[in-house]
Amino acid sequence: MAQTIYDRLGGEAAMNAAVDIFYRKVLADDRINKFFEDVDMEKQAAKQKAFLTLALGGPNKYSGKDMRVGHTHLVKRGLNDTHFNAVMENLAATLQELKVPAELIAQAAAVAESTRKDVLGR
């Protein structure tokens, strides 16, 4: 079986470092940070860790329904494609910073992209 990006980066332990980089980028991004304010930072980081784990092919049991339910309140606040695209950019930038090769970043982006409909409640 092909090794996942998750395994290549170092598995669960590497996710903590990846989350710190990703979350920091998201909070510093004025296009989307309003969706990440007013939440418990630990809980937010845990969710992002689950998201990164999913995108990188690590163990996860997230379903489309989880994604849909988890973002309903944000869709009500105006979450749309522009914001989703911004998150995708931050994901790619995070993986670049972690020196993940371009073809694997594309793989991860494709997995993340597959959640778009559920995240945006379509």
Partner: peptide
């Protein structure tokens, strides 16, 4: 619970 695989810590 959420991820059920030791990642999300919920």
């Amino acid at each position: 619970s959420s991820c059920r695989s030791g990642v999300c810590q919920s």
